[in-house]
Amino acid sequence: MLRTGLVLGLLALVGPFAIDMYLPALPRIAEDFGTSETAVQMTLTGYFIAFGLAQMIYGPMADRYGRRLPILLGLAVFTLGSLGATLAGSVESLVAWRAFQGLGGAALMVVPRAIVRDMYTGPEATKLMAMIMLVIAVSPMLAPLAGSGVIAVSGWRMVFAVLCVLAVLALILTVTLQPETLPAERRTPISPRALLHGSAHLLRDGGFMGLTLIGGFGMASFFVFIASAPFVYVTQFGLTPTGFSIAFAVNAIGFFTASQMAGYLGEKLGMRRLVRFGIFGFSGFALALLGAALAGQATLIAIAVLLFLANACLGVVIPTTMVLALDDHGEHAGLASSLGGTLQMLAGGLMIALAGPFFDGTALPMIGAIALCAVIALCLTLAMLPGRIEAVQGS
């Protein structure tokens, strides 16, 4: 399990690095192109939306052709997108090439989830998913620091050149270390009718939709923070790119530490009960932060501490909801993984777009959007999961 977790985690790391590594450059990109902060945030929105929609392609492809081919194709597309972003001459061009990156990076999110489902279920799958999350958690801690170093030496365009190199390394890793986990006899043909039928079945499944959207709005709070924090920390609190990178990394520590306890806590408490407890904690800390902001007490320390605690709660929610959403759909793990990933990424892109018009460079709009994500996740938990949680509280 250790080797599988490391390989899948390193593959899944490419997508988050494409987000986190260039965050310190967002204010400089706005300055270089002579455009607004909201326009530059569209480079993230475009990435997230393309990333989400493309999962509907890679999931069925993974069920039909196996797990390795979609990964290789996604890495090729991601590499081309990174090259285009390196040479972008306008913010509109950068948005387009970032979306192209997202089209490739999606494979590296959806296919590893399906591989986990091929190999394990239940708490064992949660442990492997948490191990993957541990590797991914390196991204928000190291990628912004690496990006600020690259930017200081060579400018923001070199960040995308580095991402090209990272994609090539991931390609080599896939070819040499990742075996195929879906044998030919278990593969299913691709047909529009089957996809529509399978998607409709999943969309009508209350447990699948509830777990997917609960995790999705938890992830959406990350996306809002990612899109807003570079400007808030630099503009309102006066941090340097390196200072921002350190502050950003602190917020990730709570998530990755808690995620490593998800499998153990799932065995002790029941996995669905764990989701409920985690969402209660996340919403409580997010609303406390909103209260502090409305009272004019949202200092840098207060934001860092309360987001640390909120993200720690999400650390047990997100890997657990990913596993539970797929548990009853092993025969269509690729489609279920891709549809779940699409819904989650669209939720993130939607929240960024909704928060954009209110963004003014201060912390309050960012905190308000995060609190809104928490309230939606809490309402979904109360409305869609209580019966299932209590019926299977030992599971």
Results as ranks from 00 to 15, higher is better:
213 L>D: 03
155 G>S: 02
173 L>F: 00
228 S>L: 03
204 R>P: 10
203 L>H: 06
134 L>C: 14
133 M>C: 10
145 L>Q: 09
239 L>S: 04
159 V>F: 07
185 E>Q: 15
223 F>K: 10
145 L>C: 06
244 F>M: 00
178 Q>S: 14
202 L>W: 02
205 D>H: 12
252 A>Y: 00
155 G>E: 10
206 G>W: 09
263 G>W: 01
177 L>Y: 09
232 V>H: 03
206 G>D: 11
247 A>W: 08
136 I>E: 13
191 S>R: 09
183 P>M: 04
250 V>Q: 01
135 V>A: 08
155 G>N: 02
256 F>V: 13
255 F>G: 01
206 G>Y: 08
205 D>V: 14
222 F>C: 11
227 A>Y: 08
166 L>C: 15
242 T>F: 10
150 V>M: 11
153 V>C: 13
223 F>G: 10
209 M>E: 15
249 A>S: 04
221 S>G: 06
216 G>S: 04
147 G>W: 10
200 A>E: 15
200 A>W: 12
136 I>S: 13
230 P>M: 06
161 A>G: 15
188 T>L: 12
209 M>V: 15
211 L>F: 13
227 A>G: 05
204 R>W: 13
147 G>E: 08
143 A>Y: 01
184 A>I: 09
138 V>S: 14
147 G>P: 09
256 F>Y: 12
183 P>G: 02
144 P>V: 02
211 L>V: 10
146 A>G: 14
239 L>N: 01
242 T>N: 09
214 I>N: 06
145 L>A: 12
196 L>C: 12
187 R>F: 03
183 P>K: 03
173 L>I: 01
211 L>P: 12
207 G>R: 15
190 I>S: 08
194 A>G: 10
164 C>T: 10
214 I>P: 06
238 G>E: 06
262 A>V: 00
151 I>V: 13
165 V>R: 09
196 L>I: 14
239 L>E: 00
176 T>R: 14
196 L>T: 13
191 S>G: 01
172 I>A: 08
231 F>N: 06
187 R>D: 03
228 S>A: 12
161 A>Y: 05
219 M>K: 14
152 A>I: 06
186 R>D: 13
171 L>P: 12
136 I>D: 13
211 L>G: 10
231 F>P: 06
132 I>V: 08
167 A>H: 06
253 I>C: 04
254 G>S: 00
214 I>L: 04
155 G>K: 00
173 L>N: 05
199 S>L: 12
203 L>E: 11
136 I>F: 15
163 L>G: 04
254 G>P: 01
